[in-house]
C-alpha cells in the first residue's frame, strides 16, 4: 500500500494552537500542499497577520515574516520588490484585511503587486474573543454587537471579493469555503491557481476563504460548518470573480 495522504512537507510537524475544529488548520494545510505540489517552498516567503494566526510563521517551512495588524500587504510588497523572483503570500483574517488593513489590501491590489493573499473570512474577531468584524452578518450576535449587528448602528458587512474585483491590478479573485469536502477540494484548486497566477507574473491574486470560529460562534465544529453554509454563503456567494480563464 502507498501513502496517499499525509502532512505536506511545507507544513511544519508541530501542533497548531487553533481551537478544536477551527478551519484555519485546514487552510494552512491546503497552502502547504500547494507549495509542495508547485515545488516552491524553497522560494516562498509568507507574511503572518495579527489575529488568531499571528504566529503561523511557526507552522510553515518557508521563510516567513510577521506583520503589524493590517499591514501584511505592505510588508509583502516590500519583500516581493526585493525578491521579484520569489513567491510571496499573505495570510490574513477579516479584521486584519477588511478593517484596519483596508487601505493596504486595496492599494496592494490596485498596484497589481505580484503577491497572493489568502483571506480567511469567519465573520468575527477570534483572537480577541468574539468581537464584530467588518464581515459580521446583519443580526449576528458578537461581544460588541450583543443585541445583534444592526446596520444603523454598526453598518453593513463588506464583500471583499466584489470590492477588489473592480481593481484592474487584481487579476485573480475567488471566494471559496471550508464547509464540506467538495468545497475544501475546490478551495485548494483556487489557492493553487492563485499561486500560479503570481508565478506567471500576471498581477495580484486573492482567495477569500469562508471559515468557521466554533469557539466564538458558540457552536460545535460541525454545527459551525452548517451555520456557515446556511448564513454566510447567501451574503458571500462563492465563485470566481476574476481570472477563471487566466492562462498559467
Amino acid at each position: 500500500m502507498a501513502v496517499v495522504f499525509k502532512r505536506p512537507h511545507a507544513l511544519r510537524d508541530v501542533p497548531m494552537h487553533y481551537c478544536p475544529g477551527c478551519t484555519h488548520g485546514i487552510i494552512h494545510r491546503l497552502i502547504a500542499e500547494v507549495l509542495d505540489e508547485l515545488d516552491i517552498e524553497g522560494k516562498t516567503i509568507g507574511v503572518s497577520p495579527v489575529g488568531c494566526t499571528y504566529n503561523n510563521y511557526e507552522y510553515f517551512n518557508c521563510d516567513m515574516q510577521q506583520a503589524a495588524h493590517g499591514r501584511a500587504p505592505a510588508v509583502a510588497t516590500g519583500i516581493k520588490r526585493v525578491h521579484p523572483d520569489k513567491v510571496v503570500f499573505t495570510y490574513q483574517g477579516d479584521g486584519d484585511l477588511a478593517a484596519i488593513g483596508t487601505a493596504e489590501i486595496v492599494h496592494a491590489a490596485t498596484r497589481g503587486e505580484k503577491i497572493t493573499t489568502i483571506f480567511v473570512n469567519n465573520a468575527i474577531y477570534g483572537m480577541t474573543s468574539g468581537q464584530m468584524a467588518p464581515t459580521t452578518l446583519i443580526n449576528q450576535v458578537t461581544t460588541t454587537t450583543p443585541y445583534g449587528r444592526k446596520p444603523e448602528l454598526h453598518g453593513y458587512p463588506i464583500r471583499v471579493c466584489e470590492l477588489l474585483s473592480t481593481l484592474d491590478g487584481a487579476v485573480f479573485v475567488e471566494r471559496v469555503s471550508m464547509h464540506d469536502i467538495k468545497n475544501i477540494m475546490n478551495a485548494k484548486k483556487a489557492i493553487k491557481k492563485a499561486f500560479q497566477v503570481q508565478i506567471a507574473g500576471k498581477g495580484f491574486s486573492i482567495v477569500e476563504v469562508l471559515s468557521t470560529c466554533p469557539t466564538n460562534w458558540g457552536k460545535s465544529p460541525d454545527e459551525a460548518l452548517k451555520w456557515l453554509k446556511d448564513n454566510m454563503i447567501p451574503m458571500y456567494p462563492l465563485g470566481n470573480f476574476k481570472g477563471k480563464d487566466l492562462e498559467v
Binding site: I45, V47, Q65, A67, A68, R71, A74, V75, A76, T77, G78, I79, R81, V82, H83, A103, E104, H107
Partner: peptide, 13 residues
C-alpha cells in the same frame, strides 16, 4: 503607515 511597513518587509528580506 504603508511605507514604513514596506520598509519592514524589504529590510527583513
Amino acid at each position: 503607515i504603508a511605507a514604513i511597513n514596506m520598509v519592514y518587509g524589504a529590510a527583513g528580506a
